[in-house]
């Protein structure tokens, strides 16, 4: 049976993740309410604005419930804003203060760490587990300032981690959903189904 993967659909690049996940054989649904987490093997937390998503999730306590579902076995894959919401620590969290995040990923992230939109860029990355470079799109991306002992760095750019894994969590500061290369999604679906 193909793994059941949800995409958090509060705001952001939802449709692109849905398509990429379908392309690698997952059974995909969207999640806007806590009840929609039931029965998922994995959840993608997409790119968008982390401040917006944290506020949209607040009325139903969705983000802490994602954390509990993860603690009960649901795999997580956060891209860009999703990585920020999964990070244990955000170094410039002022605009997120007072709002619960998912947490659990032992990294320190800094929002828009590379600068404004003019500093957004693309790069081909060597990724652990992939046999050829992965095209990556960085858009007002977060910087991973440090990683804890349990965190495996899957890819780096300019000597900073840009894709990481920790147990049943994966995160990237770039947007694998914006290209036609779905190998990172395939790695996640494999992790979620395991």
């Amino acid at each position: 049976m193909s793994p059941r993967i949800g995409v958090l659909a509060l705001q952001g690049a939802v449709a692109e993740h849905v398509r990429a996940l379908q392309a690698v054989g997952a059974e995909v649904s969207t999640v806007r309410r806590p009840a929609e987490l039931a029965g998922l093997d994995g959840l993608v937390v997409p790119g968008g604005e982390s401040t917006t998503m944290a506020r949209l999730a607040a009325p139903t306590g969705l983000l802490p419930q994602i954390r509990s579902a993860h603690d009960d076995g649901m795999a997580l894959f956060g891209t860009c804003a999703g990585m920020i919401l999964m990070a244990d620590d955000v170094s410039d969290a002022a605009a997120l203060e007072g709002f619960e995040r998912i947490g659990g990923l032992d990294i320190v992230a800094r929002r828009n760490g590379y600068g404004s939109q003019l500093d957004s860029f693309t790069a081909d990355l060597d990724v652990v587990g992939l046999d050829s470079p992965l095209p990556a799109v960085f858009i007002r991306a977060p910087v991973v300032e440090s990683t804890g002992g349990e965190v495996e760095v899957l890819a780096s750019a300019a000597e900073r981690p840009v894709a990481v894994r920790q147990g049943r969590m994966m995160a990237s500061s770039f947007h694998p959903e914006l290209t036609e290369d779905h190998r990172l999604h395939a790695l996640f679906v494999q992790l979620a189904g395991a």
Binding site: Q11, V14, G47, G48, E49, S120, V137, I139, L178
Partner: peptide, 14 residues
């Protein structure tokens, strides 16, 4: 460019 059309994707639903 991909980064520029991509930023608009990140604004969707907002």
């Amino acid at each position: 460019t991909t980064v520029n059309t991509g930023l608009a994707h990140m604004l969707k639903g907002g």
